[in-house]
Amino acid sequence: MERNRDSETVDTTPRQILSFMLDGDSFGVEISGIQEVLEYRDVTRVPRTPDYMLGVLNLRGRVIPVVDLRRLFGMQIAPVSVETCIVIIDVELDGKRTPLGVLADRVNEVVELDPALISPPPRLGARIKSSFIDGLARHEDDFIILLRLALIFSRDELETVLHESAVDERRASADAEEVSV
């Protein structure tokens, strides 16, 4: 930590970011919020959920909701490729950390970024929601758009997605009990 000339504390600790691609653009999230990266696998669609929610997957007995950021961000939908993966992240809801899967075209790498190379998010006007952008980081000859995934979804959207996946998890548990009987 250093102090700038206005006596404010400035964090000079490098930030570790997992960078991934969506529609040709680089995005990144803090590595501390990532559980793991999975090869793409089919997900079970959950009725009456938003179109950006692909469905749920079973990860070691836990039902994890999976969202498609391309759909959420209004990008062109792309077919699944050999590089497509699901990044399992932790989001916080009511003080509880909850896993959520995010579809990515491909994962690039973990990069260490100097905070001095991170610019604040651009002002996009009142009509475009950009509160989920943490900043823009210059890396090599490109930019990485840093995301605050917990802020991408409204509280209601996140609760809906997590509620539907919890209902699906209870159904899966009940089905498993019936099979074992």
Rank of each mutant, 00 (worst) to 15 (best):
M21T: 13
L22S: 02
L22I: 08
L22P: 02
G24T: 13
G24I: 09
G24C: 15
G24A: 11
G24F: 12
G24R: 09
G24D: 12
G24V: 15
G24L: 09
D25E: 13
D25V: 15
D25L: 13
D25Q: 14
D25C: 13
S26K: 11
S26Q: 14
S26L: 12
S26R: 12
G28T: 06
G28Y: 05
G28L: 00
G28P: 03
G28Q: 00
G28C: 03
V29N: 02
V29A: 08
V29L: 11
E30A: 09
E30H: 10
I31T: 11
S32Q: 11
S32G: 13
S32D: 13
S32W: 14
G33D: 15
G33Y: 12
G33N: 14
I34N: 10
I34D: 11
I34K: 10
I34Y: 14
Q35S: 14
Q35G: 14
E36D: 13
E36P: 02
E36T: 07
E36V: 00
V37I: 11
V37W: 07
V37F: 04
L38P: 03
L38K: 07
L38G: 05
L38I: 06
E39R: 14
E39K: 14
E39W: 09
Y40N: 09
Y40E: 05
Y40P: 01
Y40Q: 05
Y40R: 01
R41N: 12
R41C: 09
R41L: 12
D42V: 01
V43N: 03
V43E: 06
T44L: 10
T44M: 10
T44A: 15
R45N: 10
R45V: 11
R45A: 09
R45P: 08
V46G: 08
V46F: 14
V46C: 09
V46L: 14
V46H: 11
V46P: 04
P47V: 07
P47K: 03
P47T: 09
R48S: 12
R48F: 10
R48K: 11
T49F: 01
T49N: 00
T49K: 02
P50E: 15
P50G: 05
P50T: 05
P50W: 04
D51G: 07
D51I: 06
Y52V: 05
Y52W: 12
Y52T: 01
Y52C: 04
M53W: 00
M53S: 04
L54G: 06
L54H: 04
L54T: 06
L54S: 13
L54W: 02
L54Q: 07
L54N: 04
L54Y: 03
G55A: 02
G55P: 01
G55C: 02
V56Q: 01
V56F: 01
L57F: 07
L57E: 03
L57M: 15
L57H: 03
N58T: 02
L59C: 07
L59I: 04
L59N: 07
L59V: 07
L59H: 07
L59M: 12
R60T: 05
G61E: 05
G61D: 08
G61N: 08
G61A: 05
R62Q: 14
R62K: 13
R62N: 14
V63T: 11
V63Q: 06
V63D: 02
I64R: 02
I64C: 02
I64S: 05
I64T: 04
P65N: 03
P65H: 05
P65Q: 03
P65K: 06
